[in-house]
Amino acid sequence: MSTPAPAVPAPGTDTEGVQAAATAVARTTRLPGWFVILWRNRKCRIGLLMLAAFVLLAVFAPLLAPYDPHEDAFPTSLGPTGSHWLGTTAQGEDVLSQLVVGARTSMLVGLAAGVLSTLIGLVIGLTAGFVGGWVDEVLSFLINLGLVVPALPLMVTLAAYAPVRGIWLIIVVISVTGWAYGARIKRSQVITLRTRDYVTAARFAGDGTARIIAREIVPNMTSLIVLGFMGAALAAIGGEAGLAFLGLGDPLTVSWGAMLNQASLGGAMLTGQWAWLIAPGLALSLLITSFTLINFGIDALSNPHLRED
């Protein structure tokens, strides 16, 4: 409905209000305020619990996996059995072990690429927004370039032609192609925040630019940064799976994408090994679901009207 309605802030606009609420909550609990607000949202709580389960799986993968995922001495192309719950691959590796260890890869890629692209986006967005002038023009051009360049083809090209193969290459490729969106949002947020009277007041109190950015501006953007990180991590997990599925991943790393790739190459469909085919896809979609659920809570964080107080 487009009838003028009473002012309800669009999601993500009132980051200071969010921050004030979060800071206030944090003082009563010792946990970060944004976390407490997220936890209170039911959908988000389920998402956080699911994600926590994946993180635990990844951390303790070597203990939980029944076999070494590269061990290929088992009978090939088994269906689910008592000693191989999800069967074995065409090379004779244990599918369950690969699934468990594959969680590590996804988590590592999500975490590392999420952190990396958030950092790049933060530095570029903050500098462009706060410094302004020609610096902003140059950086904005870069950001726009990053936005229009189609990420997937670029990822595929970079991954295909890179002289080395490895999980870190994938992480770097994903970060380099995925920072621009976050940078743009952060830049526009900084532009609103830097005109606040408290920023002028900090100038009058004698504070320098670096301190003003670190102490006055960034704390008012934490929810945006968390949001950006989640988005980037999710994109990275998807990106890695996609590359690996296309056979562009690191052949030595066990990952869900690579499992899907091998399952289709190894003729899982023909041999009727449904578990081998479905398990990695299902794991991937559960992980994506957990992120989506957490995002519901982040919307609530940015929009007080959705908060379940």
């Binding site: 200071e16 209000g17 004030a20 606040r196 002028t200 007041a201 900090a202 504070d207 006055e216």
Partner: peptide, 27 residues
């Protein structure tokens, strides 16, 4: 300076003690 809008002149994430400590530290 004393500003017009007391709601925007103080950083919502910083305590009163912090706001007052800055000019004291710098000057």
């Amino acid at each position: 300076m004393i500003f017009q809008d007391p709601f925007s002149a103080l950083n919502p994430t910083r305590t009163i003690a912090y706001a007052l400590s800055r000019p004291l530290a710098n000057f």
